[in-house]
């Protein structure tokens, strides 16, 4: 269809109109909350009851278990491990303190497993409904295009948080079972109490979840481009891998600060004393930029889209 002459249609109808006709019966005071809340609750319920969602969460929960067991076996003979890979060198600390398994597991899942699962959920958000034909019934209900898109984004963001917390809680549990817990040493060498360490772990989980907002917005945008849920998921995950590879090519260093994954591992700076904020702030700013750019693109695209499935 011609994009140019349909542009702005939904923009007018979905944004400017009051949420209900003036001739509706009086509603309870929480009208605005209900307007978004009802659909959001139902969306959460629908998403988290899908077998696929639960399978993704199960895979994420399994990663810390595997890492924990591997470290336990590796160090069973008394030798110490060294931090491998590109992640922060938390892994060598796990045997001293199980809490480090949380940081290790998040560092291990953030480059791929976490964003991949976000890509699946976000890519499927609109395209999956279009593919099943349920999108047309949601829209004639009428869900409202802006309302539906915001609900979908909020649900994907919730999934980001839940997925990160699943990794963190699984890691904490495995860490507590296999390794000792106690006061811990920061990257800077200072000692903090176990309680403060737990606080840092929670903060890190929140930062990791926030690091995924860019991928979530990108996936949602891709999802508005196609009527095939599988194609949208594959494209999003493909983009994710491509960006990760490009981020490793030294010749592209001028572009790399704009890749959504570039500052992901900056969450390790929360384990410094004092906390080194520069890259953390850059990361969150970059995620906000991606969310704004691709969120707007998804909105413009979805409002102008002819629903033919």
């Amino acid at each position: 269809m011609s994009q140019a002459d349909v542009k702005g249609r939904g923009a007018v109808s979905d944004v400017r109109l009051p949420p209900r006709g003036r001739d509706q019966p009086p509603q309870p005071a929480s009208r605005r909350t209900t307007f978004y809340g009802t659909l959001f609750r139902n969306e959460l319920h629908t998403t988290f009851r899908r077998w696929r969602t639960l399978a993704l969460l199960a895979v994420l929960a399994a990663v810390p278990i595997l890492v924990g067991i591997a470290v336990k076996i590796e160090t069973g003979d008394g030798s110490s491990t060294t931090g491998g890979g590109g992640g922060p060198a938390f892994i060598s600390q796990i045997t001293n303190n199980g809490l480090f398994l949380v940081f290790t597991a998040l560092a291990a899942t953030l480059p791929f497993f976490l964003p991949m699962s976000i890509g699946v959920i976000a890519g499927d958000a609109i395209a999956g409904e279009a593919n099943a034909g349920t999108l047309r019934y949601l829209l004639v209900a009428p869900a409202g295009r802006t309302r539906l898109l915001l609900t979908k984004y909020a649900t994907v963001m919730t999934f980001c948080l839940v997925a990160t917390l699943v990794v963190a809680v699984s890691a904490l549990t495995v860490g507590a079972v296999l390794f000792p817990l106690g006061d811990l040493t920061t990257i800077s060498g200072t000692q903090i109490t176990f309680a403060e360490g737990l606080g840092r772990a929670l903060l890190i989980a929140l930062v990791v979840a926030a690091s995924l907002t860019g991928v979530a917005a990108l996936g949602l945008f891709v999802s508005t481009l196609t009527n095939s849920g599988i194609a949208a998921m594959a494209t999003t995950v493909g983009l994710l891998i491509t960006v990760q590879i490009l981020d490793q090519i030294p010749q592209l260093h001028a572009l790399q600060p704009y890749f959504f994954s570039h500052y992901w591992l900056s969450f390790a700076d929360l384990m410094r004393e004092p906390v080194y904020w520069d890259d953390l702030v850059k990361n969150l700013g970059l995620q906000a930029l991606y969310a704004a750019v691709f969120g707007s693109a998804a909105w413009a695209r979805f409002l102008a889209k002819d629903i033919t499935t």
Partner: peptide, 19 residues
Amino acid sequence: PRAARTVLPHVGALIEGPA
């Protein structure tokens, strides 16, 4: 489609089969 939000609650639809 401009008034979809006010019109469609009064309309029930079955379009190209159920989904």
